[in-house]
């Protein structure tokens, strides 16, 4: 699908290391996140970081791969189930539980991706939706997922068998390390030669083919990577909340991550993080308004599509004339 006619500013190729501006932003972000648990409720801050990573992973596929998946909840949710199961039933330590969830998402991503990338545009979106619905069905029916109740009371365990994560603050820094590391890795992928080829494919697929690139292999790789990082986010979330539930695999979760990415600015590095932060904060602080949250989300969607197709960060990037 050609997303190039959308007027989104495309960052110029960044071949030589990370530009100073990005370094500064990452540094400021890291400092901010290090003091955040002492300012707001740590569990809320952790939720925020998990969704930021989820949105960033999704953005790798949509913003840089040009592929709209409508079924990313499948990877987020299944990783969350596997990680919860691993920690609770197999008694694995948190880092191994998260790892097993992530691996599960990667395998699932590879399998679904191999089938889905054979289609384009809206058909691609529909194939991913179809598979996500099947994953949801399995989550509802399978024994180990606990059906409607989900997997509850997942123990928090000891990191590497040594450091107790029962305390919110120590867990927070574990989550910070995982999600921040994840986002940095995504950054690295986007700015690698692989990322450049992706960009070429997104801009002009026939041309990339004529240059001798095996387009499908690249698409499958980016799909799998995106699924893997989405899984990393989901697996981490299950350790934070100590549960995995159907919410994580439902199609509305797939819709939410699209919203976050779109709102923040797809195809930007920092956009999805901003989008996730806004949506999660909104859900948290507007919870008492009940259905109004849905209305407000809808309004943001509409305004975003009508007026800010570049997203918040995209607009800022245009103002300061620097890629963000």
């Amino acid at each position: 699908m050609a997303m190039s006619d959308t007027g989104i500013t495309r960052p110029a190729a960044q071949q030589a290391g990370m530009p100073m501006l990005h370094k500064i932003i990452f540094l400021v972000l890291l400092v901010f996140l290090a003091v955040l648990p002492f300012m707001v409720y740590p569990v809320f801050a952790m939720k925020l970081m998990c969704f930021a990573l989820f949105a960033a992973a999704f953005n790798l596929l949509l913003g840089f791969g040009g592929l709209l998946s409508f079924g990313h909840a499948a990877f987020f949710g299944s990783a969350s189930y596997v990680a919860a199961h691993a920690a609770k039933v197999w008694g694995l330590t948190p880092e191994l539980a998260v790892l097993s969830g992530t691996v599960a998402a990667a395998i699932l991503g590879l399998a679904i991706g191999a089938l889905a990338i054979r289609r384009q545009g809206i058909y691609f979106a529909m194939v991913t939706l179809a598979f996500a619905q099947m994953v949801y069905f399995v989550a509802l029916q399978a024994q180990f997922t606990g059906g409607e109740d989900g997997i509850q009371s997942v123990p928090r365990g000891d990191l590497f068998g040594l450091i107790s994560l029962r305390d919110n603050v120590s867990l927070y820094f574990f989550v910070l390390a995982v999600t921040f590391g994840g986002v940095l890795m995504l950054y690295r992928i986007v700015h690698s030669p692989f990322g450049q080829v992706l960009k070429a494919i997104r801009e002009n697929e026939p041309r990339a083919i004529s240059l001798g690139y095996n387009v499908n292999r690249y698409k499958l790789m980016v799909f799998t990577l995106s699924a893997t990082f989405a899984g990393l986010a989901g697996a981490t979330k299950s350790q934070v909340f100590q549960l995995a539930s159907l919410t994580d695999v439902h199609w509305t979760m797939s819709g939410e991550v699209v919203l976050m990415t779109l709102l923040g600015g797809m195809g930007t590095i920092f956009g999805p993080l901003v989008g996730a932060a806004i949506i999660v904060t909104m859900q948290n602080y507007l919870a008492t308004f009940g259905a109004w949250v849905t209305v407000i989300q809808g309004v943001i969607f509409v305004i975003g599509v009508m007026l800010f197709r570049e997203g918040i960060v995209g607009v800022i990037a245009r103002w300061i004339k620097r890629p963000l």
Partner: peptide, 19 residues
């Protein structure tokens, strides 16, 4: 624009109407 924007817009409208 691309088809996807129509999809996203109407998705938002659906949320508003249902809410």
């Amino acid at each position: 624009l691309d088809h996807l924007y129509g999809l996203l817009l109407t998705f938002g409208l659906a949320l508003i109407i249902q809410g």
